[in-house]
Design a protein around this nucleic acid. Structure first.
Lengths: 138, 138
DNA sequence: TTAGGTGCAAATGATTTGCAATAAT
DNA sequence: ATTATTGCAAATCATTTGCACCTAA
C-alpha cells in the first residue's frame, strides 16, 4: 500500500519520518514500542527524535491508522490498524504472534441489550507459553 | 472474607496497611489506581506511603490476590482477583462496570491445538459508551 | 510562502529503589 | 528478638510539552 497517498487522503503531510514509521510498522510482524521504532530508524541512519515518534503515533492513532496495544511491559506498543486481530504473548520468552479469528459481535450485542452499553471496541489478548518454551520447560 | 487469615495462609504478615488496601479494594465496585488507593487511605487518616502501596500490590499480584487492569489511562488499576470478569469502560465519562459471563475456554482450546500455544490467562475489556452518555449525546 | 512538522531540551507523572526506622510474629 | 515491612527521599523510565527552526505542499 502507498502510505504517501494514504497520508495525503487523511489530509496530513507525508513527511519522511512519518513514512519511515509506517514502513517500519508495516514490515514488523509484531507491535513495536516507541523506543524500538526510535532505535530501528536510528540504525537506518534516519535522523529522528523520540518526541517526534510519540507525536506521529498520537496523530496516527487519532486517524485510526495505528492502534496501541499493552503487553504489560511497562510501556505501550503500536501496530498498523486495519486488520482486527489479537495476540498470543509468551510470558516466558516474550515472543508475540498474531491470532486471527475471534468474533465477539454476538457478545457485544448481548452487552448492548443487557447493559445498554454500546461497545465501540474491545481488547483481547492471550498470555501464556509458546510451543518452544513449553518444550524447554521439560 | 477474613483477609487477615488469607494473608497468614499465604505466609506474609498481616499488617495494617495491607489489610487497609485489601478492604478498600474489596469495598470498591471498580478497579482502583495506586494513587486513588493512596488518597482514599489518607482520607481515612491511615498513615501510608505511595511506594508502600506499590510494594503491597506487587506482592499481592505475585500471590494472585490482586489483578492489574489497564484502561488506557496512562496508569494501571488494581482489583481483587478471585472472580474472573471483564469491564465495560465508558470512553465518554470514564465509568467502569463489571461484565460477568464470557467463556473463552473453547477459543483457548483451539489456540492450543492450532498454535500449540498454552493460554494461561486472557485480557478482555470493552470500550464504548454507557447508557447515560448515549442519552446525553442526543 | 506558510502552516504544519520536527529536533532539542526540559518537564511531567507513574512506578521503583536504597536505606534506616518500625512493627508483626 | 528477629525479620519482614514501611516511610522517606531520591532515582528511573515512558511519555509529554515549549519553542525555535525546518520542510512539504
Amino acid at each position: 500500500m502507498d502510505f504517501k497517498e494514504i497520508l495525503k487522503e487523511k489530509g496530513i503531510k507525508a513527511t519522511k519520518t512519518r513514512l519511515a514509521v509506517l514502513n517500519l510498522l508495516d514490515k514488523s510482524d509484531q507491535p513495536l514500542a516507541a523506543t524500538t521504532i526510535f532505535h530501528d530508524l536510528k540504525n537506518q541512519k534516519i535522523k529522528i527524535d523520540l518526541a517526534t515518534i510519540y507525536r506521529i503515533i498520537e496523530k496516527f492513532i487519532g486517524l485510526k491508522i495505528v492502534k496501541q496495544v499493552d503487553f504489560r511491559e511497562g510501556m505501550l506498543r503500536y501496530e498498523l490498524a486495519g486488520d482486527h486481530h489479537h495476540h498470543l504473548i509468551c510470558q516466558s520468552c516474550g515472543d508475540v504472534s498474531s491470532y486471527h479469528g475471534e468474533c465477539l459481535s454476538e457478545v457485544e450485542k448481548v452487552i448492548k441489550e443487557k447493559y445498554k452499553f454500546n461497545v465501540a471496541e474491545h481488547v483481547l489478548e492471550f498470555f501464556g507459553t509458546c510451543d518452544n518454551c513449553q518444550k524447554e520447560l521439560i
